[in-house]
Write a protein that binds this DNA or RNA. Structure first.
Lengths: 121, 121
DNA sequence: CAGGATCCTAATCGATACTG
DNA sequence: CAGTATCGATTAGGATCCTG
């Protein structure tokens, strides 16, 4: 017989907001997309240029996901050839403090403790 | 010929701290592990109980990862049967503000916009 | 109780080619 | 330019069994 389980000292996040928000940031690229939209509206091709190693397919997927969840707005421009522009919604702007907090921790991480994988930016 | 690319108004996060920190929180369970360690040291079995749907294998993986990157400390207890306890390091505590910011956004998300997947808590 | 070994499924991503 | 379709590689995760 081992030790008895102690009661947790922290409450589970009600209705799982932690997971709900992490779902938004899931994947290698979603945080970068949001990061580069903080400066204002940005076209598809501009985002591809901002985030060089993202593929068109994944960028398209992330943009549609973020749009479906009300984080960004898509605007079709009446140009030739046609182009599209994406912009953070009011709700989407609320992600920025979270992103800032994450970046702030990131700057304190020791580089030698980083994983040996591709970086996402 | 379409529109010219506009210069991005935001700087890329230097040395990619955004991705470095997101790597720590990547996956469905790492944020939950950190969340439940904020109340103090916690044993392996207690964490399994805190996070009911995590498997022992994945919990073990996440704990080893977080330990390798200096976010948590592992302590072997001299009990019978032997048990192990995990605790946030000083560096690990710096993740908490980021987690709080994420949760804060999560509480504002519309539930109907959530994905149709398993929740991670 | 803690956690490694094995096997398998599902999700994510990159590359390439193609459409309106 | 702004995407979509298809394919294959990588990875996270679950289930089960097993050991100290």
């Amino acid at each position: 017989m081992g030790l008895p389980l102690r009661k947790s000292k922290v409450l589970p996040p009600p209705q799982c907001p932690l997971s709900m928000c992490m779902d938004l940031l899931r994947g290698a690229w979603a945080p970068n997309v949001i990061w580069y939209l903080r400066g204002g509206a940005r076209r598809f091709g501009e985002l591809r240029h901002d985030i060089p190693r993202i593929s068109a397919r994944v960028l398209s997927q992330r943009l549609r996901e973020l749009e479906a969840r009300g984080m960004i707005m898509r605007r079709l421009l009446d140009t030739s050839p046609p182009s599209a522009e994406y912009e953070l919604t009011e709700l989407g702007h609320e992600l920025l403090p979270a992103l800032d907090a994450i970046v702030k921790v990131g700057t304190k991480l020791r580089h030698d403790a980083a994983p040996k994988r591709r970086l996402a930016a």
